[in-house]
Structure formats: C-alpha cells, structure tokens
Amino acid sequence: MKLKLGILDQSPTSMSGNALSALTHSINLALMAEETGFHSLMYAEHHGVEAYGSSSPELLAAIILSKTKRIKVGTAGIMMRNYSAYKIAEWTKLLGSIYPGRFILGLGKAPGGLKDAVMALNNHKPVVLSSMETKLEEIIRFLKEEKGVYENLIAQPTHLEQLPEIFWLGSGITSASEAAKHGIGYSFAAFMNSENGTENTEAYLQQFDLTQYTSSSSLQVAVAVSVAETIEKARRNAYGMAYQFLQSRQLVSPEALFPPEMVEQKVLGTQDEKEFFSILDRMIIETPQSVSVRLEHIAEQYGTDDILVLSNMYREEDRINTYQSIIKNNT
C-alpha cells in the first residue's frame, strides 16, 4: 500500500551545531522531500528552547513554499493561545491565496514553550485556555468570510480560490471530538501518546460533521521514526530524540541533541532510565527493508494512509537517511 507520507520538521539543533545550521538543514530537507515525492512538510512551533531552531512555522512555511512547486507545506502547529484568531486568519489567507491548495494550517492548543515564553508572547498576561475552541471558530469564520464578533470586519485577501486545509493537532479524545465537530482534519500525535490512540481516531471519524468546514474527514497520524542499516544503530540514533522527549515530559526546557554516548551517561543508572527506555520503545525503530511494512501496519491500525514522520538525529546525515529510506520503500 502506497502511503501519503509527510515530514514533521522541528528544525532540531545538535550539540555540534546551532539554530542557523538547523534552519539550513530544514531548507535542504524540504528540497529533498519535494524531489523524492513526499506529500507534505509541516513545521513545528517552539519558543525559548535550545533544542529547536525555528519559533515561527508560518514564516518557515512561507519560505519553503517559495522554494518548491508541488509539495504541500504547513504548520504543525501554530500554538493558538499565543495569537489572535484574526491575525492567524490573515496570514493563512495570504499564503492560501498565493499558493492555492498547497498551504495547510495546523493548529494546536499546547503552549509551545515554558511559562516565561508563554507570558512574553501574551504581553505578560495569563492565557484563558477555555477560549481555544472559540478561537478556532473565529478563524473558520474569517476564512469562510462569514460574519462574526466584528460584523463588518474582513480578513484580507478575500475571495480565495479554495479554502486552506485545517488540521487540529492533539493526542486525546477532546481534540478528536473538537476536530470532528468543526469539520476539519485531525492530526493525532501518536509519538506523544499512543495509548487509546485508535479510540481517539475512531471517535473523530465517527463524529465527523460533513456540514461544517469541509465535507470529508482527513485523519493524519504523526509518529517518531529512526531507520538505519541495523536495528541497534537505528535505536542508538534515536537516543537524542528520546532524551528530548523525556525532558519535555518532565517540563524541562529540551536541550540540543546529544550524541548517543552522552545520552547514556545522562540516563543510565539514574531514576530517569526506565522512563527513557519506555519512550524509546514507543518509537518506530526499523531497517530500510522493514520500515515500509511497519508504517503500513500503523496506517491499517488507524484507518488512514496519511502518516507524518518525525525524525530528530544528532547527525543530520542519519536524519536524512531515515527519510530517504522511508520514501524509497513506499511502493
């Protein structure tokens, strides 16, 4: 089964590099993805952390759209609590008008950073989390050019050829139900939480309202993958990514990617060892010969052909090799 493969790019920094090199790698990865046949590229939003080079997925998406011709490009996602619905709608319509059918608006409810970053982004005011779904509704009204809170206010440019795709990012049943209720796509973050995953995605598909934003459901599953010549090498290549996940779960600002040897020094024999290897075990660790079968099984499990792949490696060549191996064997 040929899958609709996408790349989730967090623009990861490594201990041996910096944010600028991470962004250069992101541009090079995008050109490779366009050339080799990936369906989409999605850029993440993180603030105030050393681990990731990009804090503005909408800007990175605009840059990549200008450098490519075919591939769909989007955000995965814009952290809604940090911006007004009106501003999100404005630049979404701008990219949607210049690149019709190619820009994807991925929206998330996560903070995108620790407390200080969120406060700074919101002009030192606390965020009202209960307003996230309301903000989504406002964005949809602006995109569809319907009257909303501001009766005569338009979001330029108007009269788009087609509405941009919207994906609601999440890892729980609430997000799945919200996406279904509003008739938008649902991107399930399996790399963050695979427990009860099929229950969440089935709820989305069963509850999807055909009369809302779009008339057909669009389910995407995001997974963390490492591919190498041997399982052992693929597993060790994923150590840096697993350690970043561990730091995020502990509400610690993730550091730049460490080499496997340094990760071992930090976790072996500590209270974090069990949790670290539990995170690692949930990743997709495969060889070039076996990765396509594993991804097909995941697609069948969730009932979708849309798979978004995250791969953060200490060595950029190992990350590129993972993506090349995946697309080469997608037949």
Score class of each variant (00 low, 15 high):
residue 36 T to P: 10
residue 159 H to K: 09
residue 246 L to H: 00
residue 169 L to K: 07
residue 248 S to Q: 03
residue 199 E to R: 09
residue 83 Y to D: 04
residue 181 K to C: 00
residue 10 Q to R: 09
residue 38 F to K: 12
residue 184 I to S: 02
residue 138 E to V: 01
residue 176 A to L: 07
residue 218 S to R: 15
residue 192 M to R: 10
residue 298 I to R: 06
residue 154 I to W: 07
residue 243 Y to G: 10
residue 295 L to W: 07
residue 116 D to H: 02
residue 303 G to Y: 08
residue 36 T to M: 12
residue 201 T to Y: 02
residue 296 E to F: 13
residue 137 E to W: 02
residue 50 E to N: 06
residue 280 L to H: 12
residue 166 I to N: 05
residue 297 H to Y: 07
residue 158 T to A: 10
residue 102 R to D: 08
residue 90 E to N: 08
residue 23 L to S: 03
residue 275 E to D: 15
residue 285 I to Y: 11
residue 257 L to D: 08
residue 19 A to T: 11
residue 230 T to F: 06
residue 13 T to H: 06
residue 15 M to T: 06
residue 222 A to Q: 06
residue 225 V to P: 11
residue 149 V to R: 11
residue 296 E to T: 10
residue 21 S to V: 14
residue 192 M to S: 07
residue 314 Y to K: 03
residue 287 T to R: 01
residue 211 T to G: 08
residue 3 L to D: 11
residue 147 K to N: 06
residue 172 G to V: 02
residue 181 K to L: 05
residue 137 E to G: 05
residue 100 P to L: 03
residue 3 L to I: 06
residue 315 R to D: 13
residue 249 R to D: 12
residue 131 S to K: 09
residue 104 I to Q: 02
residue 3 L to S: 07
residue 69 K to G: 02
residue 270 T to S: 12
residue 253 S to E: 00
residue 327 I to F: 09
residue 216 S to R: 15
residue 46 H to M: 07
residue 293 V to Q: 09
residue 24 T to M: 05
residue 259 P to T: 12
residue 185 G to A: 07
residue 109 K to E: 11
residue 55 S to W: 08
residue 45 E to V: 03
residue 21 S to A: 11
residue 307 I to K: 06
residue 144 K to D: 11
residue 6 G to L: 12
residue 104 I to S: 10
residue 237 N to P: 08
residue 23 L to H: 05
residue 276 F to C: 05
residue 326 I to D: 04
residue 159 H to W: 06
residue 314 Y to C: 03
residue 185 G to K: 09
